[in-house]
Simulated assay, not measured.
Amino acid sequence: MNIANVLTVLRILIVPLFLLALFAAGGHDTEWRWIAAALFGAAAITDRIDGQLARKYGLVTDFGKLADPIADKALIGSALIGLSMLHDLPWWITVVIVAREIGVTLLRLAVVRRGVIPAGRGGKLKTLVQSVAIGVLLLPLSGGFASAGMDLMYVAVVLTVVTGLDYLVQAARLWFGPGGSRAA
């Protein structure tokens, strides 16, 4: 265990606390929503920090390679599903984002013997915009501020689809690239 992995585990442990806060008092209590937003924000920040620490100090481990994406998907997925259950986010957005995340994970697994599809700038931007949009939607805001959260989420959906298609192209290149087509 190193500091990067500890932060990843901490992020995983925050997810149930975040959900408890999100759904407390019917899901729309102002104080609980602020607490849920703070927990989400803290978890999202640990994602950024643990990755930087792991790369900068050579703390990349097999555990981290496995646990970090699980933690990310648990945090983002639980927030999206929670917001949709509370009718604060349309279900179609949740379905698009969650389906893309599952699809990219399956694509990566399908081509892993031929190569690794690294996280690109688009994927990192997608995660950042998703996180900021979710953070804003979690806050008990109204008017233009609440609209800004949905506007950010629409941008996140576009980035989600575009980067998902990019992963699909990369996977096809690995699958059918040098070495000939894949034999069944």
Results as ranks from 00 to 15, higher is better:
H28A: 12
G120R: 11
G123T: 11
L59I: 11
Q52W: 15
I102Y: 10
A74R: 07
A71H: 04
G123C: 07
D88I: 03
H87P: 00
L106M: 11
W34S: 09
V60P: 10
A38L: 13
G27P: 01
I102C: 04
I93P: 07
D68R: 02
G27A: 04
A42P: 01
W34F: 15
G64Q: 03
A25Q: 13
A25E: 12
A54C: 10
L75P: 02
D47Y: 01
L89T: 01
K124P: 07
W92Y: 12
M85E: 14
A36Q: 05
I97T: 10
G82D: 09
A42N: 04
K124W: 01
M85T: 11
A74E: 12
L86S: 05
R114F: 12
I70H: 02
E101M: 10
T30M: 10
P69A: 02
T61N: 09
I76T: 14
A25I: 08
F40Y: 13
A25S: 13
I45L: 15
A21Q: 00
R48V: 15
V112S: 15
G120E: 15
L59Y: 14
G58D: 03
S78E: 04
L107I: 05
A110F: 04
R48I: 15
G82I: 01
G120P: 07
I76Q: 10
P118Y: 10
I97C: 13
R121K: 13
T46G: 03
L83E: 05
L107S: 10
E101L: 09
G123I: 08
G41F: 04
G64M: 03
I76L: 13
W91K: 00
A119I: 15
E101A: 14
D72V: 02
G64H: 04
L53A: 07
R114C: 06
P118F: 08
A43S: 06
D50W: 01
T46H: 02
I49R: 04
A71I: 02
L89H: 07
Q52Y: 15
G41Y: 05
K124T: 13
D68G: 09
L83Y: 03
L107H: 11
W91E: 06
I76C: 08
V111Q: 06
